Amino acid sequence: MPVQRADARRNYERILAEAEREVAAHGADASLEQIARTVGVGSATVRRHFPGRRALLEAVFRERIEALCARARELAGAPDPRAALLEALHGLAAYATSARGLATALTQDGGAGPEHVNACPAKISDAYDPLLERAARAGAVASDVTTADLVTLISGIALATEHDPDAAARTDRLLRLAVAGISPSG
């Protein structure tokens, strides 16, 4: 990333902080124009830092996704591959449920061009693939299940529970039901 002037860096940080508030309140459809108005900059300034909604959403979710991925990498050596995978999945599901807009950002088609590259699923895949592969080798998960399948499943659960009065509990229950479905029968 090129070195930014101090005022440009401050604008970036203010825009990102307001974007976090707007996304928490309005999900993935948060208004870029409202963010610009609240921060006191023009929409061109917002777009200079974040060329599109996807880039803005990725910036909002990046830090937490990186923490979830770091935890998944820590769990890769855990003695129980199934328990390690489930812990990582529950962490991702809890965050996807609490962070309005994340599920939509994870499932949207990226389109073409660098401004549409969705880094969150790629980071998740890099961190969660080893957990899934270990669990599959241990017979704890069907061998044809992919991390993309699991992210889609979690995203669907998060979207389905978004307006539930106890979204966290409902998400946990639905994920437990889904886990029973992805585990090999026997």
Rank of each mutant, 00 (worst) to 15 (best):
residue 124 I to R: 03
residue 27 G to P: 09
residue 176 R to T: 14
residue 42 G to Y: 01
residue 8 A to T: 14
residue 63 E to C: 04
residue 156 G to Y: 05
residue 106 L to V: 12
residue 105 A to K: 00
residue 108 Q to D: 14
residue 157 I to T: 10
residue 125 S to Y: 11
residue 183 S to D: 07
residue 162 E to W: 02
residue 40 G to K: 10
residue 138 A to Y: 08
residue 111 G to I: 02
residue 88 A to D: 08
residue 7 D to H: 13
residue 91 G to W: 07
residue 60 V to Q: 03
residue 54 R to C: 03
residue 164 D to L: 06
residue 125 S to D: 14
residue 144 D to M: 08
residue 69 C to H: 03
residue 27 G to I: 11
residue 102 L to W: 04
residue 160 A to M: 05
residue 112 A to L: 11
residue 94 A to F: 10
residue 33 E to N: 08
residue 76 A to F: 06
residue 143 S to N: 10
residue 174 L to S: 03
residue 71 R to Q: 13
residue 143 S to F: 01
residue 58 E to V: 03
residue 167 A to R: 14
residue 58 E to I: 01
residue 65 I to R: 01
residue 57 L to Q: 00
residue 122 A to E: 09
residue 179 V to C: 05
residue 138 A to R: 09
residue 157 I to V: 15
residue 139 G to Q: 10
residue 152 T to G: 14
residue 76 A to I: 02
residue 151 V to L: 12
residue 49 H to P: 02
residue 170 R to L: 12
residue 163 H to I: 03
residue 51 P to E: 05
residue 29 D to C: 01
residue 153 L to M: 14
residue 69 C to P: 01
residue 102 L to V: 06
residue 30 A to F: 00
residue 53 R to P: 01
residue 50 F to A: 04
residue 104 T to W: 06
residue 37 R to K: 15
residue 41 V to N: 03
residue 112 A to S: 12
residue 133 E to Y: 06
residue 169 A to Y: 08
residue 98 S to W: 06
residue 149 D to A: 06
residue 66 E to S: 13
residue 142 A to T: 10
residue 141 V to M: 14
